[in-house]
């Protein structure tokens, strides 16, 4: 077992095992916690651990992107949806919804782990070395990543932009309210927010955008008048 570690310096070994421990604890926290917010924060723990392992393997740029995109954007999106839906109540995790499901899931997962371990141990997937350039650390690695992205991988790169546009449009269509654009709701919300006698909301289309601008002004006037009184 120790033959793997021959040639590795002690700080590297310590970093690997510490970050790996953090990753595994975070992953177990995601699966085992009965509170969605705790699961999201455990996910952040795992993501940071993986980022440390990226730095350890001289993938500095990817570590930065990992922290910014995953921990910064995706987990915040998760937390936002948890708070928006109000599903942050405790799930009864002790009760098994389907009899025998967990046993089979665990057995399946362990068998899967054994399969990956065997395949990974045998290095069955070693292909041709250095098709688009060698990976090395530091600034040079970022330059190589950029060169590979914008030359050899230009078409996939452009396809991801298309994918992102499709995802944004799909998300908007999925969460859109049914039917034509309903101005009644907007008027109600606006009237509850800003109490303006005389505005019966006839010109809703124009007032919709202007209300957003008007809101702080109205509040400012109120506070000023309150101060004056």
């Amino acid at each position: 077992m120790n033959s793997y570690l021959i040639g590795a310096a002690l700080p590297d070994v310590l970093t690997f095992f510490l970050a790996g421990l953090i990753c595994v604890i975070g992953a177990l926290g995601v699966v085992l916690s009965n509170h969605p917010v705790r699961a999201a924060l455990s996910l952040v723990m795992t993501l940071f651990g993986v980022a440390v392992l990226f730095v350890e393997q001289q993938a500095d740029f990817l570590a930065a992107v990992q922290v910014i995109v995953y921990a910064g954007a995706i987990v915040v999106l998760f937390l936002f949806v948890i708070m928006l839906l109000g599903v942050d109540k405790v799930e009864k995790i002790a009760k098994e919804p389907l009899k025998g499901q967990r046993i089979f899931a665990l057995l399946f997962g362990l068998g899967f782990l054994a399969l990956i371990m065997i395949f990974g141990h045998n290095h069955f997937s070693m292909g041709q070395n250095s098709v688009v350039g060698t990976a090395s650390g530091g600034d040079k690695g970022i330059v190589q990543l950029a060169q590979a992205t914008f030359t050899n991988y230009l078409l996939p790169f452009e396809s991801t932009s298309l994918l992102l546009i499709i995802a944004v449009v799909g998300a908007v269509i999925l969460v859109r309210r049914e039917g034509p654009f309903d101005t009644e709701d907007l008027e109600d919300e606006d009237e509850s927010r800003i109490v303006e006698p005389g505005d019966d909301g006839l010109a809703t289309d124009s007032s919709n955008s202007s209300d957003l601008v008007e809101t702080p002004i109205v509040e400012g006037e109120d506070s000023e008048s309150a101060e004056a009184i």
Binding site: A8, E56, L106, L110, F112, L113, I116, G120
Partner: peptide, 26 residues
């Protein structure tokens, strides 16, 4: 010289399996 790639692949396998079991049981 850093830790050998086999350890990283093993850690990746463990993390993947935890996520896999999580999708199945949650």
């Amino acid at each position: 010289m850093t830790v050998s790639v086999g350890w990283y692949v093993g850690l990746g396998a463990i993390l993947f399996s935890i996520g896999f079991v999580g999708v199945l049981i949650r």
